[in-house]
Amino acid sequence: MIEKLVRGDRSRWRIRSAVALVVALLFVSIGTGLLAKSLPKIKENVCLISYGWSRSEKLKSPGGVFFYARKGEIYVADTGNHQILIFNEAGTPIVRIRHSVDGKEPGTSRQGEPKQVAVNSRGDIYVVDSLARYLDVLDYRGRSIERIYPGDLLDMQRDDVRCAAVTVDSADNVYIGVSGEQSAVLVLDRKHSLIRRIGEKGDGDGKFKAITGIWIDGAGKIYVSDARNEPAVQVFSPEGKLLVKFGVHETGPHNFSLPSGVVTDEFGNIYVTDSLRHWIGAFTSEGKFIIRLAGGFGTRPGDLSFPTGIASDGKRTIYTVEKAGARLQGFKLEITQLEKD
């Protein structure tokens, strides 16, 4: 009798367990389906690889890259070769501009180490150089025509702050990421007058510690990657209001080790390079992780080796440069987006 009762209990338990399992699987599949629908699908195809000016003069520790939409050119800060390299969209190097900075003694100059570069609609080239405390403005021929000291803009000693990142928007406003004793994004109009300051040095929302990249999307939103602050990526309105933030220094694909740059595509998806994880992470416009787009440490097409910079045409092509990989790569994105933002 007891045995029958036990057997009966067991069979009922098994039936209940099976039902519960089916229900759970149903929920999981529905949930997964919803999740899948909520995220765009992105695939990348390597469309460009360049190793530098020539076979004998390869890129050396490149630090930054910028896509000049007006001419379809790619500007690379070729740090170790003290120059800016300009590539056409096919990845062929077409121009190189040697970059010098002030020497230790007045009136002298020395080889620079350009780290980031951006270009306005006139073709003026903005260069962040690791060895200079100013943002160097070059004309299209590479002649220095102006120097912008963030220290002056912030009413600080020139040596106390440095340019860490630069970009330009479609209206030729210039965005300078500043690090050092103070940290902020400085927004300059096309005549280089300070019109806005975003953020300050510190931890947390709306603050910065080590800006590594700035990007402006078509709507004027400002994207900032920071190597040390948490959140690692922050998105601001054109007026400087914090809109979106994501990523901390922690494990997990939605987090970062050393974010080194940020851009978006035409849908507003966000792409962030991580120097130490050797990949490009793709995120929704709300900062939700979608996919690890490219990378994995290596030297084959699509691999990355210490990526230090990222650029975008604002549509469906992104470019990266790698410090150790010493190359420029371009990726065409195949994006399946339910609806455009």
Binding site: R292, L293, G296, F297, G298, T299, R300, G302, D303, S305
Partner: peptide
């Protein structure tokens, strides 16, 4: 991490 089969390559 999310199980996506995107190949991860090591040097």
């Amino acid at each position: 991490y999310s199980g996506d089969p995107t190949q991860v390559v090591y040097d």
